[in-house]
Each structure stands twice: as C-alpha cells, then as structure tokens.
Write a protein that binds this DNA or RNA. Sequence first.
DNA 1: TGCATATTATTTGTCGACAAAAATTATGCA
DNA 2: TGCATAATTTTTGTCGACAAATAATATGCA
Lengths: 234, 234
Amino acid sequence: MTDSDTNSTPERKRGSGVKMVYDLLRDEILDLVLPPGSPIDEVQLAERFKMSRTPIREALVRLAGEGLIDTLPNRSTMVSNIDFLNMHTFFDALVLMYRVTTRLAAQYHRAEDLQVIRAHQADFAAAVAAQDALAMIATNAAFHSAIAEAGRNAYFTGLFNRLLDEGRRILRLYYQSYEDRLPQRFVEEHEDIIAVIAARDSEAADRLATIHAEQIVQQIQKLFARGGKLDIAL
Amino acid sequence: MTDSDTNSTPERKRGSGVKMVYDLLRDEILDLVLPPGSPIDEVQLAERFKMSRTPIREALVRLAGEGLIDTLPNRSTMVSNIDFLNMHTFFDALVLMYRVTTRLAAQYHRAEDLQVIRAHQADFAAAVAAQDALAMIATNAAFHSAIAEAGRNAYFTGLFNRLLDEGRRILRLYYQSYEDRLPQRFVEEHEDIIAVIAARDSEAADRLATIHAEQIVQQIQKLFARGGKLDIAL
DNA sequence: TGCATATTATTTGTCGACAAAAATTATGCA
DNA sequence: TGCATAATTTTTGTCGACAAATAATATGCA
C-alpha cells in the first residue's frame, strides 16, 4: 500500500490495458472465479489495475456484447447468470456445431491443420492421464476449436467458440476437482475423429461428431437429471 | 456555426446517446449509406451528435464487437469489408440457420408467434406487390427472424440475425432499385412454410426451408456467377 | 413504533483536456 | 532532384472531474 515514488509509472503500452482487463475478467468469469451474479465494480477494477475507468468500461462493454456480463442502465453490472431453464437450447446448438464444424473440417482442412489438431489431442490425452479435470475441459475445448478452425467458416467458429466458453463455465460447476473414468473413451473417439477428417470423409465425420457430442450432452444432462432431448435428425 | 447561447442544452436522456449513435451507424452501414471501407471519424461524429467522444467510442466498440467495423489500433477505424472470397461460408451458414430455425419453430412455436409471423408475411407480400426491392429485403428478413424467435433458441437466433444483417448488406449491392419477378414465388413459399410450422411438421419445415434458402442462395450466386455449392446433405 | 419524505452517499454516464502514436509535411544533405 | 531525417499536425487512448441517477440513510410526523 505504500506508494513510495510519485514519478509517472506508465509501465504499460498504450492499447494494452483494455485487452489485459478483458482477458483477465473473461477468464475469471469462465473459470467461475467470478461466479454468476458477482457484482462488477468499475472503481475497484480501476484501482486494481491502476488505470482510469475509461479502459475498464471499454472492456466491460465488450464483455457485455458477448453476454458474459449484464448491465443495468445507471445501475449495477454483474456477471451474467447461467440459464438452466433453457439448457436444452445450449445442447441443441452445441451438438449441431460439433457436427457442422467436424464435417467442414473433413472437407476443407489442410495438412498443417491436422498437426495443430493432433497437438491439442496430445494435450487432452495428457490431461486425462494426469486426471486433471480442469485441464481436460480446457484442452478438449481447444481440440474442437482447432477442428472448427480447419473448417474455415468464421460464422460457425464464432458461435462454436462462444458455446465452448459457456460449456466451460457449466462444466466448472461440476468438475471442480473431480476424477472421472469416462474421458479415456473421449480420447479414443478423438482419435477416430482425426482419422476421418484426415480421410476427408464428411459423412463419417458428421456421424462420429454426433455420437461424440451427444455423449457429452448426456453426461452433463445426467448431472441435471433432465429429460427431453431434441432430435435434430438432419 | 454561430454558437449563440451558452446555456447547457442536454435535451437528451442520460443513457440514450450511445444507443442512438449505435442504431444509426448500424443502419447506415447495413443500408450501405456508409459503404465498406468508409472511414469512421470519432470527432466528426461527436460534433454531428453534439456529444463528447466517450459515448461515440462506446457505440463503436459495440459495432466492432459485431464485426460491422474494423479498428486498427492507434490507427483509423472503418466500415468492415464484405468478404466476397469466402462468400460460400456465408451461404453455408445462412442455409443451415434457415433450416434449423424453421424446424425449431415448427416444434416450439406458440399461437401468438404465428400471428407475428403472419403479420411480417403480410408486410413482405405488400412490398412485393409494390415492387419495392428495399422493403422486400427488410420484410423478408423480419419474417424469417420472427420464425427464428418462435424457435426459442437464443444461440441460433443470434447467429441468424447477424447473417440476415450481412445478407441485407450484400443484397443492397444489387437491388438498389431493381424490379424482379421471382419474389412472387417467395410469397407462396412463405405461405407454405407458415402452414407446416402451424402443423408442427418439423420434417416438412426443414425440407421447405432448405429449398427456400437454396433458392435465395442460387439467386445471389447467379449475380456473382460463382460455382461450387457446398453440399451439407445433413 | 411505523411509514412517508427529505437528505446524504454511492455509482454511473458524460465531458474537456492531455499525451502517445501515427500520418503528414518540412527540412537538410548528397 | 532524390532520399533520409526532423518538425508539425492529426488522431487515438487515457485521465481526472463533474453531474445525473439511483441507493442508502436520516428525519419528521402520525
């Protein structure tokens, strides 16, 4: 607390403040360090990062644009809630994006994409071997995000990444420090998915992605004990 | 230029400035009043709306979040370009969202949704009858957006509305004041789509939406004279 | 005491100003 | 003249301060 010297200490590049605050708040929200409903105090953040409220507010506007925080006009702003009532809409969107992005990856991927995908798969396998649930969530998301990138459709990757973020938040609710046996099966399924992508087999990619996605959904739904799966038999 | 009186003239509610600027800029971008590549000058906007740069910048941050403008750090900001090279990714996403939202509308719509949908269809029919191409684009988008809302999946409606916005921008390039005969067919197809939604026939909804969407895509693609339709035979 | 109103305090939205970064123009030297 | 460097202008990012809006607290009256 002893602010010893009075010289101006910028110590920070010009446009980097907003990105720093945005990235950190985003991580804290997705990791549930800031659980849903947590109040966001501009002044507090400003003195925490030793900058004025202006860049803080810009970061908050961005987060609000992605739906990660809710802003009441002239009132408080807080971390957005997870909508458990409409969870099925999340699952529907997630399954469909799993399918579409994997299918497109099989169609449009390049050689270098496969290397990236395999690297993420190695990370995921390592996380499973280490029984590190938090790392599993992160590396699994990175794996599927890389597949989506290989599909080269910015509209789908955009939605998919948002869904994976939201899924990260949901999964954190349950796998705080939890060991599980199921993931070994996921590792094998990932290998199969890589194989059909490499073989450019769109139909098989769609099929495997569907099974894979619905398994994940079912695993989460077991936690919620909710029925009513929506059958988008496309 | 003669700043006659010095009394403070707020004349405007506290949080309304950003929304006003955001809405107006958004419309001007989508209507191509501000064509792709147009420079956005904060100071100019500030004096145009008689407010400081702060609310202007907040509106710009939001628009950048939606990809409608591109911001170079410490450099200029301009209206984002339309990516003609990857136009097929737009079509893929558009067709899929047409299908999914129409299917979900058949499944989850309520009685009051149909009234809204039919009202938009009436507007569309009126625009076609009046040969008003610009109104056709707007009312057609509103019609399908209403269907998406009836499907009650915020993730899909979010992406779909963004796609419809982008489509509005693309179509404006060609239908500046253009008369066309095709739309009459669209009116009939819309009626058919309403019927199968009302009948809660998901499969038929999917089928009609696919045909409808691919027709629109083909019509646009004729203008581009590009081949290579991606077959997402789901 | 209980409730309505008034006062104070906190927080948000906006402003004008300044400084850093880049673009533009001017200057010097070969 | 041609080009590199320096000075100037323009534009953006950040800051501290103020005012509106709301929340919290205090006061008055039955």
